[in-house]
Design a protein around this nucleic acid. Structure first.
Lengths: 326, 326
DNA sequence: TTGTAAGCGTTATCAC
DNA sequence: GTGATAACGCTTACAA
């Protein structure tokens, strides 16, 4: 593979001149430039980004460390983040941790070795002890010390869900989720604000008997079986808000299996926009967060890293998505 | 950020010795090794992979160029390929082309610049003119000159679908797909073998009036509206095999909208394993191809590139997936 | 305008 | 066993 020296020799110029030509920097006489470009085409020279990275001390590579890109919302996020970065001239490395802390640690090690310019991180694990100041990180839905984050307006999402259930005439509500910051984990997740917003709005309207179900942090997908028992043991419940669409879908299926109708007897609202694999036969009513907008904000923050500008946390608006379950 | 020279100085040894320690290569006296390792820990030295790439002339980075990672099957593939590569010590760069040839070309250019070690490519575009011998490529479902490919056993998939429809008592079959190699494109896709296998098996059983619907290559997701008209104009059709689950889902919805029942009146078989977003309320009967196995084969081929072993095309078995539409 | 040379952080070859 | 030193391919002062 030809290098810059080959080009320089063949064109009868110095390598600095070739460099100036390919980077469009500095002064180069038109004729010289033409000659160099001619040679470049002739011998099929392609600048070596690795060598350039060495000199420039940056490689324009960003990594996205996330639990699992096959999860619906994460997959959308991945796609949009990649797109956003491509438009800005950066490349994306994907790192699926499968929710495992050890794998996250191993990945971060690898990413340090590879000197990626920045890391976009999506995790619910206790990763903080394994990070250091030198890493340029952006988190999604997660508060870490001195790390900027992007999140959707979870608090508003919770309030919107509450308002809809109230307006639909529900009297006894319930929240189901594994975002718990309380007894199960010390992890601080922005996602918990869905719960806070939901309860605050309900209280403000005089609903005080809302059931609060929490269980250890997972991936917002699975639900412990006993949750279904709780639902059955509380036949008065007629409005449920869940931490995600995946959980909502499972709840709907289970309720229907137990002879109640959704939304006629029980209304269920999920979170993420209403998509599901579970073949419910109806669209989940949901609070939608936009992967495009979140990715856009991530792109802007990354750009700020490159431009050495200060980074500010970003909260992206959510919207109520009409569906057939509430 | 400390480098190998810093370590060498502080440990009072030459850099070659440090290199031997971190690579576990050559002879190093135990005491020397301990001292060096001690210093490495002390100053937090992390080897620079970029520099290593320079010297070694490889960076252990593989790129996955695909149309759109949010498509169900592609997303699964991406996840599994990344996992497979991670296990082998390689890193994955994602490149979504959104089906656009120009974007694929731009990506390939970028990947050349970055000297990625290999490219896994999934495309239906006429990309061949833009590749050259120096690129180490592996395609999925696609035949290119001198490029090894991995694909599922599409031909057998087609036969399995035919057998099931026959066994279910269907009399008049139809195939729907945009894999066409005939009048619409010169692209040679392994996917077309689904069609060939389907027809061959039907013919072998004496079914000769099978309807063959083809339309220009897309992404195996959308379907031209007139296809639905064709279905309606042929009320005798009672068995349909489609190029993908996405197409199958759309066909099922449309048939039911027109007052027929699936699978009672018309049986529909898709391809990919039966998943869908479309909330059919039932699982699609389908020919399943395993993203895990395909990814595994891709991993093996990539490994062969690194090991400079010859690469052979890989055909991965498929299986019939029972569902509720056929 | 253009060329020379230092430096980026490794690995590997060769002496010692 | 160990240490200089030459690559690897580029950018960028600094000189000319």
């Amino acid at each position: 593979m030809p290098n810059i020296i080959d080009v320089a020799k063949k064109a009868g110029v110095g390598i600095a001149t070739v460099s100036r030509v390919i980077n469009n920097s500095g002064y180069v006489k038109k004729e010289t430039r033409d000659r160099v470009e001619q040679v470049i085409r002739e011998i099929g020279y392609v600048p070596n980004e690795i060598a350039r990275s060495m000199t420039l001390q940056k490689n324009n590579i960003v990594a996205f460390l996330l639990p699992n890109s096959t999860h619906l919302f994460f997959g959308e996020l991945l796609f949009n983040v990649e797109k956003e970065l491509y438009d800005r001239g950066y490349k994306l490395m994907v790192c699926n941790s499968s929710e495992q802390l050890e794998k996250e640690i191993a990945y971060i090690d690898m990413l340090k070795n590879n000197r990626v310019d920045a890391i976009v991180m999506l995790t619910n694990n206790d990763i903080e002890p394994f990070l250091n100041e030198s890493l340029r990180i952006i988190t999604i839905d997660r508060r870490l010390k001195n790390v900027p984050y992007v999140t959707s307006d979870n608090y508003m999402g919770g309030r919107l869900a509450a308002r809809h259930l109230i307006a639909s005439g529900c009297r006894h509500m319930m929240f189901i989720g594994d975002d718990a910051q309380g007894e199960y984990t010390s992890i601080e997740t922005e996602v918990s604000k869905r719960r806070f917003g939901f309860f605050d709005e309900l209280k403000a309207h005089g609903y005080t008997d809302t059931l609060n179900i929490e269980y250890p942090l997972g991936n917002y997908i699975f639900i412990p079986p006993y949750v279904h028992d709780i639902i059955r043991d509380h036949p008065e419940i007629d409005g449920i808000f869940t931490i995600s669409d995946a959980v909502a879908a499972e709840v709907v299926l289970n309720i229907e299996r137990n002879g109640k109708r959704v939304p006629e007897d029980v209304k269920v609202i999920g979170y993420d926009g209403g998509r599901s694999f579970l073949n419910l036969g109806k669209k989940i009513t949901s609070i939608g967060q936009s992967p495009e907008k979140i990715a856009e904000k991530i792109g802007e923050l990354i750009q700020n890293y490159y431009d050495r500008k200060p980074l500010e946390n970003q909260v992206v608006p959510v919207e109520f998505c009409h569906g057939e379950t509430a």
